[in-house]
Design a protein around this nucleic acid. Structure first.
Lengths: 372, 372
DNA sequence: GGGATTTGTTTATTGGTTGAATTATTTGGA
DNA sequence: TCCAAATAATTCAACCAATAAACAAATCCC
């Protein structure tokens, strides 16, 4: 018998509603009152009060003085995510740099550490040890601010299995690297929960959570390889095995240039980092052809270009848009938005830290349970 | 302020758990007992008993005698979906036929009506009137069986807006047709709730609910046009505006044959119905190239071929698989399954009826509320 | 200063699940 | 034949969380 779904008990009701209230505060532009939350969520004021009390006691929300006087009535106490609440540690390993950042509950980047350096000659454990050094610096800086780190997430340029093992990262020359195990073995980092994810996936999440991020878009990251993160309805789509987004090996010219993957005419052979420098027009056209296919298939109306594509955006835009106008079936019915990534090269690291924060916001009950 | 999500009250808990129990019975191969459901869902036996009582009273479940004696103890009463419970009416309009079927709660097709005839010369209201005739026959046949029809769903070969208006159906020459309004205006059908959806989408759902249907796959329907339904994790992905799946206009050869959509080298120009007849190898190769792109992007491991592709499957298979082997990045790590649609040409109609049934199974509380 | 108004809390009630005890119905062994 | 063991289903008191309505708090406006 296949049991799908899980039962709902009263405690799940509370967990759901705690998350609902916290999310409402997080998504709010101003500092909402309990009454405003009640109106927005449909919960009664009494229930909202009870839930807010728990969230304040747990250090996730803070109460502020009422800022603007508006009309009659008792002034409302403004609620906001607590900047001194649990924070997330975002980590990134890429071909030519390591990075770490501390992001608090409100989404502010509190600390940021980057070290340049080619990782290709180093072993995975050497790279992860260097990264561990950065992580310790970040932990120390966070601790000096009175911030507790709830967890860490690591962005890597490769295919990652659900258990955090990096199956293959071609440009780092990694194969079957158990990144969480190698990271947690370092002194001082043994009990820091860490998740690992693909760089483009996390960068896409970073863009999703950045100011003005759309709910559905395709994030395309042009590094040495080309990866994509697919965000549908505010959620990252990971695919059956977590290997979605390999847009670099979508065929553009069936009988075109041979690719290192064995096929011919892959996008990567026309719109990779080197190819952009050599012939920007060809890169834009190839990218446009591939993106049009994605749009026809997924009915996505926003494309976000990251990595090298973000810096080269002015040179690529016209060429891409020309192909989209020609090849997207519904181009006449509704426009496609093409824009550069708002976070630039920090997107993946920011997304990683954000993923830790988001997990807290999506399930505050689990956090409150851990720290009573 | 953007309120995302909805509050959970106690009644939602019951609604959720009613659905959980019903789904558990529906997905079960045998006839589970209350105790088995309790084990599978995690709900207590007391709760399951209470929920099952409601579902039996509402006519959704039936209790059967225990079939096999196994070990000691009081024999278990087997529960199953009621074949005399509410049924779904599946409707389909296509270029050269109209179809209707009645599917009961258990998924059995109880009645099936098809009339051949070219719809292209007819106006939308004329086609829908003919379909109404079929629908009335189906309603009568269902009524003779003592079956109540809970609702209807209509499959059309075109882009459908969320409100049921057919924006465009190129091969029927429809534009902005308010299908629900035209259908409900017919005598005897005025109070039958009807939803409208794309033919490939509903066919994909039909395959999902057929015996042995996978949870994630791409359904490709080769009719005069080429459409696709994307099923991810047991759910149909509709895209931001409900216009996903336009795989027919994915570019295969950027400088290839001109397409009626204005672009060059669309899949439809190489793997449409006429092209298969003319050159099956070319059709298979083009299809393989496009599908490889989808797999790289979405990490989908099952492709289901429907419509003409299902009947031509033996002639196409090798050619498609050759391109997949060459062009799918992870082909070496995990195999891609390619198969013909199990339901053949009935897939869309069956999927439409199934959609009505599935809505009942997903939210039995709404149905029980309506008919106390 | 008093009424109007809005915010937030208190309290009794209700809906729904839980867990333990109870009843029901079979198999198997003395 | 009869009784213990085993499994299925029901009954009932307890509990948890949300609700509705009354109440207290704090401001504005006249």
């Amino acid at each position: 018998m296949t049991a799908s779904g899980t039962p709902v008990r009263q405690s799940s009701v509370r967990a759901h509603n705690l998350a609902l209230v916290l999310r409402t505060v997080a998504n709010s532009a101003d500092r909402p009152s309990r009454a405003a939350i009640s109106l927005a969520t449909g919960l009664t004021r009494a229930t909202v009060s009870a839930l807010v009390d728990d969230l304040i006691a747990g250090g996730l929300l803070t109460e502020h003085d009422p800022a603007p006087r508006t009309g009659a009535g008792r002034p409302a106490a403004g609620l906001a995510l607590s900047p001194s609440g649990p924070a997330g540690l975002g980590l990134e390993i890429n071909v030519d740099y390591l990075a770490a950042c501390v992001v608090d509950l409100t989404g502010d980047v509190r600390h940021r550490f980057v070290t340049q350096g080619d990782q290709r000659p180093l072993s995975p454990s050497a790279s992860l040890a260097s990264l561990g050094g950065l992580a310790l610096q970040a932990l120390e800086a966070a601790s000096a601010d009175g911030l507790a780190i709830a967890g860490a997430a690591l962005a890597v340029p490769g295919l990652v299995a659900p258990n955090g093992i990096v199956r293959v990262a071609p440009n780092l020359d990694w194969q079957d690297v158990d990144a969480p195990a190698l990271f947690n073995v370092l002194p001082g980092l043994s009990d820091l929960p860490i998740t690992v994810d693909n760089e483009a996936n996390l960068a896409a999440l970073g863009e999703l959570w950045a100011d003005g991020g759309e709910q559905s878009f395709l994030y395309v990251s042009g590094e040495i390889g080309i990866g994509a993160g697919i965000v549908l309805g505010g959620e990252l789509y990971r695919g059956g095995r977590g290997w979605s987004g390999e847009i670099g090996h979508v065929t553009v010219y069936p009988d075109g240039r041979p690719c290192r993957c064995g096929a011919n005419g892959c996008l990567e052979q026309y719109a990779g980092q080197e190819q952009i420098a050599a012939d920007a027009d060809l890169a834009a056209s190839a990218l446009g052809i591939a993106l049009a296919g994605v749009i026809n298939l997924l009915d996505i109306s926003v494309i976000v270009l990251g990595g090298t594509y973000a810096t080269e955006f002015p040179r690529l835009r016209a060429g891409i848009e020309a192909e989209l106008a020609r090849r997207v079936l519904t181009a006449g019915l509704a426009p496609v938005t093409l824009r550069a990534a708002a976070l630039g090269p920090d997107a993946a690291m920011r997304g990683a830290a954000g993923a830790v924060i988001q997990e807290l916001i999506d399930d505050p009950a689990a956090f409150l349970m851990r720290t009573p």
